[in-house]
Simulated assay, not measured.
Amino acid sequence: MSKDPAPPALTDAVWPAVPSGGLVLVPVGSTEQHGPHLPLDTDTVVARAVARRTADALATGPYGPPLVAPAVAYGASGEHAGFPGTVSIGHEALRAVVVELTRSLALWAGRIVFVNGHGGNTATLDGALALLRSEGHDAAWTACEVPGGDAHAGRTETSLLLHLEPGRVHLDAAVAGDTRPLPVLLPELMARGVRAVSASGVLGDPAGATADEGRRALTALVSTTVRRVTAWAPDDRGRLTDR
């Protein structure tokens, strides 16, 4: 079983040991259905792993060893509301959480990065970080996106969870869902929700998923996140970009 490295966690710190002006990474995920084979916190697991490994890679950077904050485990998941277990706080509540977290962290942190594992949070983070940056906060966000990956609970996320937490993956229950590309699915998803498109909740096909593929995907996610944080080139929405 893969084990995360152990960079400094905010929850483990005592206040005299918290550096002033440091970098804080805040994982943002969701609690929502991920088909019949993946746990409800899949997005949070991935975001937390990316944040932890990014912090480990940046330990000798100009902001010193980054701190990893507790994950925001609830997001904007209204499109998954047709499935039991999904818990969504919606865009307004998530926006308020992100804004107030940043304002509080900024009292002692020098730089704040939200590491997002759920695509449904994108519009909220765009709006919140644009506001925060207009207030003068040195904050931004970045997405955990695997180029060419499928949309939801398919081969990509299944591989990632097989690498990170294999004991929580129920491959015997895995089924293929709607395999059309996300840009094609998105209008219907927005209008009718995931359940209307896929009875299983899967958008993609978990077949062929492996822990090794998940390891490679996670390595790529961390590499991208490290590069973006190091370059520090946020756009007008607060998204970290590749120079």
Rank of each mutant, 00 (worst) to 15 (best):
V50M: 04
A130W: 09
D235R: 09
A231N: 04
A209F: 07
V28F: 07
G201P: 04
A196R: 11
E157T: 03
L185N: 05
T156Q: 08
A217V: 03
P234I: 12
G204M: 10
A47I: 13
R111W: 05
C144E: 10
L182C: 00
A217T: 05
V97C: 06
R243K: 03
E135M: 06
A71W: 07
S200T: 15
R53T: 08
R53E: 15
V115Y: 05
T156W: 06
A71T: 04
S77Q: 00
A59P: 02
H91W: 03
W232V: 07
L23K: 02
G61E: 12
N121V: 06
A174L: 01
R111E: 13
T42E: 06
L125M: 01
A9V: 05
A55M: 09
D235N: 14
V26W: 06
G82T: 00
P181A: 10
D172Q: 14
N116V: 01
A231Q: 10
N116L: 00
A73E: 15
G110R: 00
A71Q: 09
R52G: 06
A139Q: 09
A109V: 00
D235L: 08
V68P: 05
G110Y: 04
A211T: 04
A128D: 01
D12L: 14
A73S: 15
F83I: 03
G177V: 01
R239I: 03
L125P: 00
K3M: 11
T210L: 10
D126L: 12
T241P: 02
P39V: 12
A196Q: 08
G154F: 04
G136A: 01
E188P: 00
R52T: 14
L240P: 02
A49M: 02
A217H: 14
P5I: 10
A174W: 01
M1V: 11
P16M: 10
H37V: 10
S77C: 09
